[in-house]
């Protein structure tokens, strides 16, 4: 099957000599919901910039559904929609005009562009704001406006660069539902985000990029399987004056009602609860200290840093 996105040995060195990408390679399959993660400055936005022609690559190959961007970029662009990290529309144009005009840039007849504009503004709850200048919208509305604009030509591959940054939790969840729906309808989605919970709940496959290199590229399921330890917060029913004896478990008292306990892979939670029960400590609730993907993400980046320090 032809990959929705194929990146081979992609390199980018900026004019100031900074090597943003050091020959990365990965593929995204059609229909996938793919997470491209990495810390700030890792190279995510540079990669997206190259895919959509805003950044000129120094080397390597990029193909969108088998179309090499060096051979026929316009054809590749027709299959691609991009929601950038920064707001990049005219603040003085009306919401309707921004979306409908983008249809025109893709060569869509006015009638079709108008129909699609109505469809996506309604789906993204912006139809009531269609006559408002973009600068009057809230941050969340501006993000949804960029999604509507990116969908106007109904691309096969949609890339979202931190689409939920600065968006409140309720709106974020409604955007997730919307993105899941268009993914179900067949659109391949690549998502970059700093909310790892978002990546874990939406995406099936993942690439983690750090300092211009891919440090992990696998399915989220297999990545989570490699998690060797998880840290939980346990809330006790009664106040604790000191940390109970935890036996083979590692832990500490965070405050008089909360314990932080680390469970190694293979250890049984039942054993932990038995140990606590023996000491008369009743646990009323427990939760992960951090998102599981976040723990992995942090450990992967820490490993990378250690390797670099040892060099």
């Amino acid at each position: 099957m032809t990959a929705a996105l194929s990146i081979r040995n992609l390199e980018k060195t900026y004019d100031n000599g900074f090597r943003a990408l050091k020959g990365i390679s990965f593929e995204v399959q059609p229909g996938d919901f793919f997470a491209l993660l990495g810390p700030n400055g890792a190279g995510k936005s540079t990669t997206i910039g190259i895919i959509c022609s805003l950044v000129r690559k120094t080397g390597g190959q990029v193909s969108i559904f088998g179309i090499d961007i060096d051979r026929d970029f316009p054809a590749a662009k027709r299959l691609l929609g991009v929601v950038p990290q920064e707001f990049n529309f005219s603040q003085f144009e009306k919401v309707y005009d921004i979306v409908c005009t983008q249809g025109g840039f893709y060569g869509m007849p006015r009638k079709l562009a108008a129909a699609r504009t109505e469809k996506y503004l309604k789906q993204l709850d912006l139809w009531d704001k269609r006559g408002v200048q973009a600068r009057m919208l809230s941050g969340g509305m501006k993000r949804r406006l960029m999604i509507a604009r990116a969908l106007i030509h109904e691309p096969e591959l949609l890339i979202l660069d931190e689409p939920t940054a600065g968006v409140d939790i309720e709106l974020r969840r409604s955007m997730w539902t919307f993105l899941e729906e268009i993914n179900r309808q067949g659109t391949t989605i690549i998502l970059t985000t700093h909310y790892l919970e978002e990546a874990e709940s939406l995406c099936r496959n993942i690439a983690i990029i750090d300092k211009g290199d891919i440090v992990e590229n696998t399915s989220i399921k297999s990545l989570l399987k490699t998690l060797n330890r998880e840290t939980f917060i346990l809330d006790s029913a009664e106040s604790l004056s000191k940390c109970p004896e935890l036996g083979k478990f590692e832990g500490r008292l965070i405050d008089e009602n909360s314990l932080e306990v680390t469970i190694e892979k293979g250890q049984s939670l039942n054993a932990l609860f038995a140990t606590l029960e023996e000491q008369g400590v009743a646990i009323t609730s427990m939760r992960n200290r951090a998102n599981r993907l976040e723990e992995l993400f942090v450990s992967l980046l820490a490993e990378g840093k250690q390797v670099e320090d040892n060099k």
Partner: peptide
Amino acid sequence: EELLVSPT
């Protein structure tokens, strides 16, 4: 960028 990312 609206124009630059398009096939125009």
